[in-house]
Amino acid sequence: MNSLIVRRILRGDVGAAARLMRDLDDELPSARSALKELYARAGRAHVVGITGSPGAGKSTLADKLVEAARKGGKSVGVVAVDPTSPFSGGAVLGDRIRMQRHTADPGVFIRSLAARGSLGGLSRSVFDTVTVLDAMGKDLIILETAGVGQDGVKVAGAAHTVLVVLSPGQGDDIQALKAGILEIGDIYVVNKCDRKDSEQLTRSLGLALEGTSPRDGWTPPIIKTAAVLGRGTRELVDVINEHRSTLVRAGAWERRSLNMARTAFMELLETGLRGFINEECERGKDCRKIFGDLAARKTDPYSAAKTTLRKLLSKSPPPPSFKKRGCPPFSKACPPVPRRRGRRGI
């Protein structure tokens, strides 16, 4: 039996969906039960990830993709991630500015997210937000990453189709090679192709991609766009659709979906474990002792980590939502958490 909020979301209630996204972002346990129901209804949308360095024109490109998809009669969800300030924990979410014109269109739902603690800008709540949009029946979901350094790479595991956006004059030619994004793109976009130096970038990108073997029957093409001028974006949309049909034809669609599920699952697992470990070291006395021993050179990091890990793993780590119980697993005051409940949080 679906809860009221789930029914409203499935009916397309934007306000209800937005509130649930917020509660998920803020890690409310009640929101998780709604997500579980929605998860079963999701899995139909084509998720297109966009990555590339800041200033490459990702948001403007996303805006044009929304426009094209709407012309093609598809409903669209956008998840735009911006970095969180490490100093204040706050964030300026400014991608929406370039897509704001679609706000009045009921077929478009744009959601800005702060990366919060996650390194890759792809936090647990990004996956949750995509799930909600997917369950709402969006045909296309555009996932725009914060594009900070090498972390954009992670988007490869969160989308069916990955666009890597580069633009001239940003040192992108060198960065691209360093950041390893040359392995993850399904489509490479050289944006701002109206600039003189874009030819150079296209050439060096072409050279760098030479010899890349086709994946899932697809060889990543380079598409030139000038998103601000609306140039090349139609072709890009065609190529994105072509990628989708190629995946389906090659039987790779399911493989990608599986990979996406894996990434989301692993992300959750890692977040849970990291939280557990952090908490352990904040509250538990053992860790403080270990720090002291390390500083005094009584032990070495490898041995200490190995012992501690073994000790931690012998206990059952609680899922993230259990943190509020405030019972460090090592403490005698709290009973050990039963194993089967541990699975619930995931």
């Binding site: 937005a18 509130r19 924990g89 706050g90 300026v92 979410l93 929406r96 706000t103 009045a104 744009i110």
Partner: peptide, 30 residues
């Protein structure tokens, strides 16, 4: 920027917004 530095998450819609677009964005952004 000041609200960001005060630890909040701030969405900026830019200039020349209609009341409809502002209200719509507020709802979508929760």
């Amino acid at each position: 920027r000041a609200l960001r530095d005060a630890g909040m998450e701030v969405i900026y819609t830019g200039i020349r917004q209609t009341p409809e677009a502002i209200a719509g964005a507020a709802v979508q952004e929760g």
